[in-house]
């Protein structure tokens, strides 16, 4: 055990190329997914918060429920879509990083949409009369609220990233954990542990934990700073 730990630290220190490659792919996939989800999720969240349409309550409940979507289920669905016989099979992207980005985007889109909806809804309650008094239309109000809740939204995006970086089920199924192609931190840890290559698994585990801690610290600090600076 302590041997494995020493080996893991040693790998980290000399930036083992294999380890670096896996970490970089992980970041590439999860950051792409979070970017896509934010681009779609924030406007959706704002629209639901500010909009008034039939079935709004249901949409909110569903969105909140989708936050708890199990990664393996998302993986399975995306797999079915992208597999050769599936409706999007012709794209031929199954077992590529792109498929992993798609799966993670679907996984965290509801998280970003639901959490931003909540933040913007709260702000709308507070601002509505003032904004309507000034003559702001809904579209305008939504943009104003997106900007005014920017720090909460950043926290939301970081939460999405944390979830993406740490999940294993979806990327395992649609990526296939192919060495050098679709192997990311979480799938590598799963595989190396079962193979008995503990140093690599441990090294990756430490990096993963460091990333998760860093993301949460960043989220906390942003909110704290913003609160102090902007009230």
């Amino acid at each position: 055990m302590s041997e494995a730990l020493t080996a893991a630290v040693e790998m980290l220190v000399r930036l083992d190329p294999k380890l670096v490659e896996i970490v970089l792919l992980s970041l590439r996939v999860s950051l792409s997914a979070v970017a896509i989800s934010a681009l779609l999720g924030l406007p959706v969240g704002a629209a639901i918060a500010v909009g008034r349409f039939p079935g709004r309550q249901t949409v909110i409940v569903l969105l909140n429920a989708l936050m708890g979507l199990p990664p393996v289920v998302v993986g399975l669905l995306v797999y079915l879509l992208l597999s050769r016989a599936g409706p999007l099979g012709a794209l031929g992207i199954l077992f590529t990083p792109l498929a992993m980005v798609v799966a993670q985007s679907i996984l965290i889109l509801p998280i970003i949409a639901a959490l931003s909806r909540q933040a913007i809804d709260d702000a709308w309650r507070e601002y509505e009369e003032q904004l309507r008094s000034l003559g702001a239309r809904r579209m305008n109000a939504a943009l104003t609220l997106l900007w005014d809740t920017r720090f909460s939204l950043l926290t939301t995006i970081l939460a999405g990233f944390g979830r993406a970086a740490a999940e294993v089920g979806a990327v395992m199924i649609v990526g296939g954990n192919i060495d050098g192609v679709t192997r990311v931190m979480t799938t590598a840890i799963a595989l190396e542990t079962s193979k008995g290559d503990l140093p690599l698994a441990l090294g990756l585990g430490m990096i993963l934990i460091a990333i998760v801690i860093a993301v949460n610290a960043a989220a906390y600090l942003t909110k704290e700073l913003a609160q102090r600076r902007y009230g």
Partner: peptide
Amino acid sequence: GAPRKQAMVFQRPVMLR
């Protein structure tokens, strides 16, 4: 949608961030 010709100052004003 047209600019308003009336304004209001609320009992508890709301300021933007």
